[in-house]
Simulated scan of single mutants.
Amino acid sequence: MRTHGWSGAAPADDDEAIARILAAARTVIDRTAGEFTIAEIARDLGVTRQTVYRYFPSADALVTATAVAQTGHFLDVLAEHLSGVRDPATAVVEGIAHTLERLPHEKYLNLLLTPGRAGAFSAGVTSDTALAFGRSILQRFPVDWAAAGITDLDELVEHMLRIVQSFVIDPGRPPRTGRELRDYLTTWVAPALSAATRTAGDRGRGRSPRTTAPS
């Protein structure tokens, strides 16, 4: 790690360097609502642009990393909101709906999921960053995913993020909100979760998932 610059106080290691860059980016984002250049961050840190680029290849990557690091508050709010929900389908429906409803009020979540500069995240819902963020959401749900027969959380995360992305890009005319939004998600999203749960139950009883009871 290069040690010149940093306003005369070089970081001890790469982890500290990254933390200081993220802190500087957070300060600039708070001041500018996310519109900044790498040159501004470098100037605030007392380093060259090349030093910042060593850790973050673009301003979009830095915005995304900063936003992800600041979404803990939202995750706590969502976990509290879903604290009494154990059914996988209900949890996913409410998780998607509540995320969409909170979006205008959560600055850093908004940076992650709305089109624009940080829309690079929204355009890459299968990226490692997006999937890690989504997993952190599911892991806070009070749902026993394994018992429900849902063992591939990455696929579920991808599905949820694709749905959120579609509503962010085109909320509808007029946008669905409240009960209408939840009814729509219950009709078109919940059945996939319910089917996975039924399949797990059939396997647990030693019955083929395709087997139906005689009429």
Rank of each mutant, 00 (worst) to 15 (best):
L161F: 08
W145M: 08
W188K: 00
I163K: 12
E101A: 15
L185A: 11
D170R: 10
A79S: 14
D128Y: 13
L109N: 10
D76S: 06
S122Y: 06
D60P: 12
P175D: 15
L111W: 05
D202L: 09
T199M: 06
L185G: 06
T114Q: 11
Y184V: 03
L193F: 13
T114R: 07
A192N: 04
S208F: 02
A130W: 03
G134R: 07
D87Q: 07
A195M: 11
G201E: 09
R117T: 10
G134K: 06
R203M: 05
G204I: 09
L138Q: 04
H98D: 06
H159E: 10
R102C: 15
G201I: 04
A196N: 12
S136A: 08
R117D: 04
N110C: 12
L131N: 05
A120R: 09
Y108K: 05
T126Q: 15
A130P: 04
I96V: 10
F141P: 14
A196H: 09
R203D: 00
L100E: 01
V157W: 01
V93G: 13
R203I: 04
V63F: 02
R205S: 06
I137G: 02
G119S: 10
R179W: 05
T151H: 12
R140G: 14
D154A: 00
L153R: 15
A196T: 11
T187Y: 07
P171L: 12
A65R: 13
R86N: 11
A118E: 06
R173M: 05
G149F: 05
A195G: 02
R162E: 11
D152I: 02
A69D: 09
F167V: 04
L62R: 13
R198T: 15
D60T: 08
A89N: 13
A147S: 08
A118P: 13
L161H: 10
N110P: 09
V168C: 14
V77R: 09
L78S: 03
I96M: 01
E180K: 06
R205Y: 03
W145G: 07
L111Q: 10
S166R: 15
T199Q: 03
A118F: 00
L78E: 02
E106C: 11
L78C: 03
T99N: 04
T90F: 02
A91F: 08
I163R: 14
G206M: 06
G134W: 02
H105K: 01
A123G: 14
R182D: 04
A120Q: 15
I137D: 03
G149H: 08
K107I: 11
Y184D: 07
D144Y: 09
A132M: 04
P191F: 10
W145I: 06
P174S: 13
G201T: 10
A192L: 05
A192Y: 04
F121L: 12
G124L: 04
L193H: 09
G204C: 06
L153I: 12
I169V: 09
R117E: 07
W188G: 00
P175T: 15
G172S: 06
A91R: 09
